[in-house]
Design a protein around this nucleic acid. Sequence first.
DNA 1: GGAATCCCTGGGCATTCTGCCTAGCACAGC
DNA 2: GCTGTGCTAGGCAGAATGCCCAGGGATTCC
Lengths: 155, 155
Amino acid sequence: MAIDHLDGELLELLAREPRIGVLEASRRLGVARGTVQARLDRLQSNGVIRGFGPEVDPAAIGYPVTAFATLEIKQGQGNDVRAHLTTVPEVLELHTTTGHGDMLCRLVARSNADLQRVIDRVVGFDGIVRASTAIVMENPVPLRIIPLVKQASGD
Amino acid sequence: MAIDHLDGELLELLAREPRIGVLEASRRLGVARGTVQARLDRLQSNGVIRGFGPEVDPAAIGYPVTAFATLEIKQGQGNDVRAHLTTVPEVLELHTTTGHGDMLCRLVARSNADLQRVIDRVVGFDGIVRASTAIVMENPVPLRIIPLVKQASGD
DNA sequence: GGAATCCCTGGGCATTCTGCCTAGCACAGC
DNA sequence: GCTGTGCTAGGCAGAATGCCCAGGGATTCC
C-alpha cells in the first residue's frame, strides 16, 4: 500500500521517460531487472499505477478552450444528470462535491463561441437548476503527481 | 493537426490496452506496422500525444481525499501565488480562470483532517484573499479523452 | 496529360527486450 | 533456529523494435 523510496524513483523515472523498458529502467536505478519487474507488477496490482494510457492534448485535436462548470442539481436527480453528462464528449471529467447537490465538471470546446454550445448542451437538462462557468486562461500547474509521489515515498 | 479515423482508432486502442506494442497494434488495426509507427511518430511530434506516463492513483499512495479550491487573488500577486502553490505537493493542478483574479486548484489530502492542513498551507500566503473549497465525494466521470477523440476523428 | 509527392504496403535485417526460469544470499519475524 | 520475502545475477527462446528498401495507388500541381 505505502510506497518506498525505490518505488518513488521508479515512478519518477517512468514519468520522465515513459518509453524506456524494464531493462533500461533497471540500469538507471542500479538494481536488477527482476526487481524492477517485481516492483512494476506490484504497483500495478496495487492500483498505484492505473495504467499507461496515452495522454492526449485536447488543444492539439481542436479543443483549445477549457472551462470548469459548477452545476446545481435538483434534489434526487443526481443519477440522471450523471448519465446525461456522460454522453457529452466535451465533458472530460465530472465530480460530485459537498454542497447543495453540486457537481463540478471540466469541459473543453473548439472556441469560446463553441463553449456556449457545449454549455447549452450540458445544462439543457431537466435536473440542472443552475450552472456557473469559469473559463481557464492559463494552466500554471498542469496535472502532476511526482511531487506527491516523492513526498509519499519519503522524499 | 486534425486527426483522421485511423488516428482515432489507434488512440482508442492504446487507451484501452496500453501495453501492446506497435506490432500488435498494427495487427489489430489491420494495417502495416510501418503505418502505425508513422502515425505514432506524427501524433507525438504533433503534440496530440503528450506522453505515456504512468497514471498514479493518489488514493493508492495514501491521499484518498480530493478537493477543488477556488482562490481569490490580490491584484498583481498572481505570479507569487503560482510560485507558492507550485511548492505544495498536494496541489495537483492549478488553473487561472476568468473572474476577479481567480484561480482553481485541485488538492489531495490524507484525510479530511489533513485537508485542513493542506488548505492552511495553500491559503497561508499573502496574495490569497479568500478560498472556498469543495470536497469531492464521487467521481462519476474520471478524466477521459476517448469520446472526444472519437468525435474529433469523425466518429 | 504528365510529374512530383505523399502515404501505405510488404518484406528483410541485426539488435534488443521480454517473459520466464533458476539459484544463491541477506534479513526480517516467529 | 527456521521460514518467508525480497534482491541479485544469470540463462534461454521467442518476440518486438528500429531501420531500411522497393513498389503501388491516390492526389496535387504544372
